[in-house]
Amino acid sequence: MRQFLLNRALQSLVVIIIMSFVIYSLIGLMPGDPIDLMISANPNMTASDAAALRELYGLDLPIYERYWNWLGAALSGDLGYSRLFGQPVLAVLLPALKNSLILMGTAFLLAVCIAIPLGTLAASKPRSAVDYGVNLFAFAGISIPSFWLALMLIIVFSVFLGWLPAGGIASNGAGLLEYVKYMVLPVATIATLSIGSYSRYTRSSMLEVLRQDYVRTARAKGASNSRVVWKHALRNAMIPVVTILALDFGYLFSGALVTETIFSWPGMGKLIFDSVMGNDFNLALVALLFATALTLIGNLLADICYALLDPRIVIGGGKA
């Protein structure tokens, strides 16, 4: 197990370093650097001013040299300053990360808690009214565009009913209830979309498992339907679902751009978008690498979860 974790950590490190270069190069290849935009906005800027500013921001160096300088500084713990916000990258990143984690984490938990029972229920009563109802809800969740759902929720709960704020985030020091009020609509938007896909995966996986011999054996032994479904089948049905959930783990930290934009929620999705569009190399790079690293961690957690869910799976090359 220790060897497995070590190998995966090394693999992840290599992937992150390669990704850092790829992301840095892609951002660098985008036409128009920050100084180009400053020149467009400032008619009085002379050629020498522009050259001085390029030097100041290190934009006069070739891309590989800039990357090398960044990597050296990053490895020594200096992630640099955000060009857009004029603050250390982590000072900008961490609050956005916290906001995204709260929003996405709540939505994720809510979606899992609702979707798995729903999918299981639908699979345990195939072709029943319950199954059709869950399927309808799931397809609606998958198909509805997030911006439309978000706007509809705002119109109903903020404009017509006036129960909830239309967007934003509670101020520092606000009470829990106040905080929750601002979270309800964005969480509902994200969770609704996730519930659709998670419940479909759960249903499909559960249907597969319910056809297995050991389930038939359990039924033959007289176990009740609910015991068969919830105690015996669910655990095995969760293996493919866990893969999906683990892959979504990275999204918890990379935010949901559309939902965050519509609800003016200052999270990672918006921050990454703004930093890429604003040519903020340091911020965009670190934010994207964060998302990459967390996706890799999510995959690792999924592997560990397989072993916990299915004793036949032994990670690290042991005997099965």
Binding site: L151, S158, G162, P165, A166, G168
Partner: peptide, 18 residues
């Protein structure tokens, strides 16, 4: 002063009194 990038959301915000 609140930043609301999406103009449809901006309209909903003013209609709701936010």
């Amino acid at each position: 002063v609140r930043a609301i990038q999406n103009t449809s959301a901006m309209e909903a915000n003013i209609l709701s009194g936010t």
